[in-house]
Every structure is written in structure tokens, then in C-alpha cells.
Amino acid sequence: MKKHIWVIAEKRKGTLHSSTYELLGKARELAFKMPDTLVTCVTLMNRSLTPEERKRLSEQGSDVILNLVHKKFKRFDYLSYLETLNNIAERFSPEIILAPATTTGRTIMPALAASLRTGLTADCTGLDIDKDGRLLQTRPAIGGNIMATIKTPKHKPQMATVRPKTFTPLAEKYSETGIYHEIIPLINTSSKTKLVEFQEISAEQKSIQDAEIVISGGKGIRKPENLELLKKLAGLLNGTVGASRPLVDSKWIGHENQVGLSGHTVKPKVYIAAGISGAVQHVAGMQTSEVIIAINKDINAPIFDYSDIGLVGDAVEILETLYNALTSLKEEISDVGNSQRTV
């Protein structure tokens, strides 16, 4: 009989979220190391998946798509999610269940694990298969100072959550067509709770996890006013501002902008750390960025060990220089653009 790895899809505003594809990529890699194993993407939606969505899920690594359809699944609904997932997990008995460590995943996965009386590892940064075919789950422990590898030796399913932006989706398309199942679950319990209202946050600023450029400040930027400079620079580059924990603790900026172990994990194309020392807990949240630029006046700051480019000097002065130079560059570009358009 075939074994199954499940990825519980994450949705945002009714469509599939990028963290789903990141996990599918990893699940595919794991499945290659386990004989006879299929990757199943489990979606909970209030509608059928479109042909485009199905195609994308197959390309990104699913062998099977299991779409659970119910009007209760417009947004995450604890009781109906738990009842449904518990039922199908008992029926199909997957080897492994993975889900993004979002507010949804971090709520439903522990509840499901407890219902199934199995183990769960939170916020894994590494997943692998050992020689016995069991899942190795690696996560930062004790404030990020060490990494612990955890196994669920005897229980099934083996369960893990993974923060968004930890893994990368498959570089090559896996398959064009997968098996598509749609199930309409019967739900009994959900009348006890009701979503009365939803207030969407204004998407004024790009979420820090989706930004291609993150410009983060630490205590070395000295004054809260200097955050304005970071914001201006981020605006110029279509990026977002991040911060180390002390800035958030001092209420200079909101927690949604904190990068690190107790903040967000980010994986932008370019990460700039200005006046940040590079404590392990901060590094834990940005180490997978493509290019890391550190600005620090202390050449011995640990952040330089985690960077590709290091600028030794005053963070505010250097950011100002960058801002001025990039502003003039932008004017030049738009002049050229305008003249080309008038031609």
C-alpha cells in the first residue's frame, strides 16, 4: 500500500498562500527518500479548486489533491477544521502531516495531534528522512542557541509545522496533472462557535514576509526618529522595514515588523541589517535571505559573520548616503523613461 505525506494548505483571502508551495516542495523531496510514497495536498475551501489551482498544486509537487469543501471553510474555523481533519486522518492514516506555522497551522496542528495522540514539532527549520524512513524534525531550541533534532519514533502520523519562508518551492515542475478528489464533510460541532465579524488590515505596507527587500534597524540606529529614514529608503525600493527585538520592546515599531525567533522569519532578495549586532535569535529569522548586507560601526559585531557585504560605519550616515544616491538614480531613470516615452 502507498504511504502518504500530507501538506495542509494555507489560504489567504480565499486563495492558496505561498507557504503551501514551499511545503509541497519539501514534501516532494521527502517522498523521494521514502519508497512508495505520495504527496497529498489537503485543502479546506468553500469551493472547488479551479483548473489553474489544481495544475499549480501538481506542478509544485502534489500527486494527489484532496479538497475538502464546506461553507464553513471560508476562513479558518476551529471546530469544523478539527472535526474534518480528524476524520480524514483516521480514515486515510497518513505517515506524515506538515502545515505552515501560521496562526491557523499553529492552532489546528496541536489540536489534531492531541486528537490523534501523536507528536508534533513546532517551527521546524529542517526536515529529513532517516535510514528507518522516519521524519527528522530540526528546530531551534533554548532561545535559538542550539538546534534540536526530534523524531516521532513509534507514533503515526508524524507531524510538524514550518514557518513560512523556511523552504523554497520546487525549481522545476513536478507534474502537469494530479489526482483530484473533492469531499464534502459532514460537520456536527460547529454551531457552538460563530465568526461574527472580520476586520481586514489595510494592506498599506507589504507584509514583512512578502517583501523582496527588508531594511531592518537595531539599537545602533539610536533614535526612533531615524526609523523614518529606513521607511523612506524602503519606500524607494518597494521594500519593508524590519527591526530587532529591542526596538519592538521599546515600542518604536510594532511587533509585526520584528525579525527573529520571536518575530517573523523573512527570506527577501536583499536583507539590510543596520545597527544590529547579530544575536542568534535575530539571525534565526533572516539567515535564509538571498543577500545579506550588514551595517555596523563595530567590525567585530557577529552580524558580519552572517553577511555577504559588510559596511563598517555609522548606520544612519550610511543609510542617508544610500538614500540620497538612490534618489538621484531614480530621478535619472525616470528622466530617461519619460524621454523614451515622448519619442
Binding site: 507528536g119 538546534m147 533534532t149 526530534i150 523524531k151 516521532t152
Partner: peptide
């Protein structure tokens, strides 16, 4: 159900 099998820095 879970066991820590390895710790590393």
C-alpha cells in the same frame, strides 16, 4: 511520542 535525537550548535 517525540524524542530529541540530536542537539547541535
Amino acid at each position: 511520542p517525540t524524542r530529541v535525537v540530536k542537539v547541535s550548535t
